[in-house]
Every structure is written in C-alpha cells, then in structure tokens.
Design a protein around this nucleic acid. Structure first.
Lengths: 149, 149
DNA sequence: ATTAATGCAAACGGTTTGCACTACT
DNA sequence: AGTAGTGCAAACCGTTTGCATTAAT
C-alpha cells in the first residue's frame, strides 16, 4: 500500500520527488516522515526508531536509517551530532542567518544548518534556547590561519 | 613502578592530588596523562586509547576510560562531544569568556569550556578557528522559556 | 516483470562492566 | 596487608551491512 493521509507542509512533495528519481514511497518511509514531522526540533536516530516502532512495530532500525539517508540525499533532512554524542536528524532547509566573522580579514560567511544545530545542542543542556538567526561567531578563517595570522 | 620523568605544567600536582584522595598513581595513568598533554587541543576517547597503546601496548581501553573518569572528577580534563559524535576530552580549566545573552530578560551567563568546545567543533570542519573569548550567543534562557516568553 | 526497499540477523566501532589478579600505598 | 587499579573478555548501544524476500512501480 503506502498510506497517504496527506503529509504536512514540506513533505507533501516528497513521494513525487522520490518517484521522479526512480525511488519508491513506502509505508515505512511514511512512518519515518510522520515521526520526523510530528516531533518539533531534532531527533536522534534511535529516538526516531523508537517513535516509528511505537506506531508501526514492523519498522526495523535499518529501514529507518536507510530512509534517513534517502531523505538526506534529497535535502529533506540533515543530520548533525547532538550533545549526547548521537546522530541527530532535523527537518529540511530552514532559513538560519547566523554568521561567521573573521577578525583578521573581516570576511563573513553564513552559518549552516548543521552548525547551528551543533551550537544549539551545546547550550540545550542548560535550558538555553539559541536564536539561530542571531548567532555570530568571531574567529579566524581558514585562509587567514593558513597565511599565519 | 610509576614512571616519574616530571609531568608538564598543570599535571605535576596530579599524583599528589590523587594520593591525597586515597587514589593511586600508576604507569597507565602516566601514559594517559602524557598522551593528553602531548596532544594539543582535543582528543576522542579512542584516539587517546590508540595514542597510549602506541607507547605502551599494555594499556587497555577500559583503563584509559576509567582514568579519564578519575581525571575528570579531579577537574583535570573535561569531556564534550565532538562533531564526529564521539566523546572528546581536553585539558583542564582554561579561561574562556564567552557569554550567553538572553534576549528576553537581558541576563548574561558565562559559557563553559565544554560548550566552547562544542561551538569550536561545529566550525572546525570548515577551517574556522573560533575565538573562544568572543563568543556571544543570543537566545532565550531557561527561566524565560519556562515563563512562556 | 523489474528492481527498490524491506526484514532479519549478524557485524561493527566505541564505550562500559564484572571479575579475578596485580601492584601501589 | 589492604585495596585501588588493572587486564581481560564479554556485554552494551547505536548504527551499518549482506542477503534473501517483498512489494511499489
């Protein structure tokens, strides 16, 4: 089959995107996506496994991880590494506008999603919710470091 | 025995501190400390294991990890979780003066070592060297979050 | 009918644990 | 002598893999 009770927001185009690449939409992938979208924020791989199995006990870890790989390839999820040292997956490309600022050359770069995640995770333990759009990190960029500054 | 070719900087008082607590100084702990101090920056647990075994093949993983626990209890090392998702250990308390700033209540808190490490690790991949003393993270503190702001 | 995706079970790497033995104090 | 610390080997957890089977296309 492949349950289709209409997917939320960014996921609704997913089945089509998969099929366009010759890939398939399955009940298991549906379960993974629903678990992902129901849980706001980030999930570790094993949390996701448990969540999926709660609704559909037939879902097996390998399927979850393989599905995540597939979703990541399409840019629907990204993964980083949480403060607990486990893989952490989160929803697709959302705008984050943090910046990296080189104190030497004055260059600026946008901070990427997974980097924001890592920063957020660093302070999650003390209950501090990082505002991703206001993160500015000062330091020295690769070029300036290489130049010996 | 317990090799004693004089330990570098902050470690020289370690044997005494251990003994003061009824704990012991062993060649294995010596090996771990030397590996830690020789490697500038951070090391994962398994990197440390390998490093130790390179000089002293008799050192076994469990001993390394147990030693790290002991060192951490004394405040000689701290551990965080690196971008590769593994435990990462680093040298004792060094001054870092980054701050957390709550956009709601205006409160400020000092960023801790392991948090700085996590932030640094987030950008290490792109060759950006974070200036720990200039990290300021804006967000919402636990209290303000709890208050529903 | 094809072949992508699944379930299973086994393997993996890093870390932790129980226990008898060793060696620091 | 007393006991903290060790080495070993086995357990553990999250993740990955090989392979025969199932099911979406």
């Amino acid at each position: 089959m492949a349950a289709h009770a209409s997917l939320p927001a960014p996921w609704d185009t997913l089945p089509a995107q998969l099929r366009a690449r010759g890939q398939r939409w399955t009940p298991q992938r549906d379960a993974v996506v629903r678990a992902l979208s129901s849980a706001r924020g980030h999930l570790t791989g094993s949390q996701l496994v448990d969540l999926c199995r709660a609704t559909d006990p037939s879902v097996v870890p390998s399927t979850v991880y393989r599905t995540l790989d597939a979703l990541e390839e399409l840019g629907f999820v990204r993964h980083s590494h949480g403060a607990d040292g486990r893989e952490e997956y989160h929803l697709g490309p959302d705008a984050s506008h943090g910046h990296l600022h080189c104190a030497v050359c004055g260059g600026q770069w946008q901070i990427q999603d997974d980097e924001v995640d890592a920063v957020s995770a660093a302070f999650a333990g003390r209950g501090f919710a990082v505002d991703a759009s206001h993160v500015t990190i000062v330091g020295r960029c690769r070029a300036c470091t290489a130049a010996g500054n």
